[in-house]
Amino acid sequence: MEPESLESRINRATNPLNKELDWDSIDAFCEQLNKELEGPPLATRLLAHKIQSPQEWEATQALTVLETCMKNCGKRFHDEVGKFRFLNELIKVVSPKYLGTRTPDKVKDKILELLYSWTLGLPQEVKIAEAYQMLKKQGIVKIDPKLPDDSPFLAPPTRPKNG
């Protein structure tokens, strides 16, 4: 079988025509970015683009991919997400000065929830905490989001059982 590019994998994992989350494609994207030398920087660029989609379902799927990769991929990916270069792309989506006024609330809430969970789960990524504090100072985060009951960072997202 031909190896697929990260780009074609993210397109499949976030396809707006998907009826439900396509876990096989999400996992395949995470696995592949770990294998490639330039996987993490390329993956974060692709994810940022999808997260900024005006289509709520496409953005939601991209956020699930991001969340899953943060849980399953290693430090190389964490370090890439922990750069302002990527964090700024998330900030743009929630900030009314950028795309925030036309972003669905569900997408904004999910981004703030993810950022907050990473400040707890990855305290060594100091830029994530700095970005989150800035959003608080700007009044974009009013109170810390309530995280799901399972562990805020380490537990994988709930996924349906196959079959």
Binding site: K83, F84, R85, L87, N88, I91, K92, S95, K97, Y98, K127, E130, A131, M134, Q138
Partner: peptide, 15 residues
Amino acid sequence: LGEESEERDDHLLPM
């Protein structure tokens, strides 16, 4: 050196 200059170029979005 590359990493250092990347670090210098990595700024939080102006708000």
